[in-house]
Write a protein that binds this DNA or RNA. Sequence first.
DNA 1: ACTTGTATCAGCCAAAAGGTGGAGAGACCA
DNA 2: TGGTCTCTCCACCTTTTGGCTGATACAAGT
Lengths: 208, 208
Amino acid sequence: MTTISVLLVDDHTVVRSGLKALLGTQPDIAVVGEASSGEEALDAAQQHSPAVVLMDLAMGAGMDGIEAIKHLRQRNPKQAIIVFTTYDSDADIVRAVDAGAMGYLLKDAAPEEIFAAVRGAVQGKSVMSAPVASRLFQQLRNPDEVLTPREAELLSLLTEGLSNRDLGKRLFISEATVKTHLAHIYAKLGVETRAAAIATAIRREGMR
Amino acid sequence: MTTISVLLVDDHTVVRSGLKALLGTQPDIAVVGEASSGEEALDAAQQHSPAVVLMDLAMGAGMDGIEAIKHLRQRNPKQAIIVFTTYDSDADIVRAVDAGAMGYLLKDAAPEEIFAAVRGAVQGKSVMSAPVASRLFQQLRNPDEVLTPREAELLSLLTEGLSNRDLGKRLFISEATVKTHLAHIYAKLGVETRAAAIATAIRREGMR
DNA sequence: ACTTGTATCAGCCAAAAGGTGGAGAGACCA
DNA sequence: TGGTCTCTCCACCTTTTGGCTGATACAAGT
């Protein structure tokens, strides 16, 4: 039996110690490091080269989870990354999978689910919480209504109340392109205005 | 030295074990029970009569945190209840304090903060995370920023994505009046656009 | 009686957003 | 190679929104 080394990335101290306590009960799993931000995660991964990285997507300050995942994948593609977060937002799921996440767990997952995800990840298996899986399944059934990564990115910024101009600046694209993306997003979400899009996004997608 | 008995209420297993691990390092604090829902919390409180209840506001199903706090206070007013949650929503803070919470901690609080809150709570002291305190302070300082009932009604409909015209029809007022109310709402929320108002309302005020 | 707060309405103007109909570049796949 | 996606950009036009100023009416508290 090989021991699986795990790196925990979460800006909440309690969540980290909770995971550590839970994973500590498993003889074949060892937490080798902790990080509370994306930047720290990169350092810690460099230092410990864990087999699995358990990462929260929402980090208070600095690099967000998605960015961190991309960097981690780039440096060590063999490393399995499991997202461990509170919400099952469509956009986040798509972006995380796109960035290279192997699994997607919600924080209310049962301990057994977490263990299974860690063990599965090192074998190249994708393990995800049921609500997440059902969302992905639905997306496969209706590919027309799935936002592209770029659109999801826009929608996410949209829910922060930015104007088209600000969106353009933030994403380094012209206002015209912003409007094009928005039109597509509206069509896919089945709404006519940005207000409705934001409402739909936050309510339906669990965005915050 | 008296040992402080604590009951943990959170629907996330990892958060519970994290808190347990953290609090376990303190000789004067003992976790005497855990619950993952409001209903369970009431039972557990009855059984263990803990000195302090650490409770998450957002519980997946059934009774929410606020309801649970009210019931707990009713049964045992001497018990100190500390809210331990992820977001510092204005509405949640007010409602929790109103329901009888002694403290309000955010999940990214440092361990020392948590210990201090538990110890302070049994002495009747209110301990809260800095962002929470600053919000409460701001509310006391600026009663001007409280929405009138009519404005709140509008804001609520706004978060459903309605246009000014639709808002007018729904509330039987002219579009001009809608615009007036909106201008007041924007000023009070400190935003310039309806998009930002919706984002602020849903995120900060806990509207869903 | 006077002030304050709330709710209602109007008009004007500038800015932002949305609709329509394109179009080119790069990736990927059959 | 041809088709399909995705992302990017443009122009033109209409609708919507927001900023500003000002007004009336009613209720409640001082």
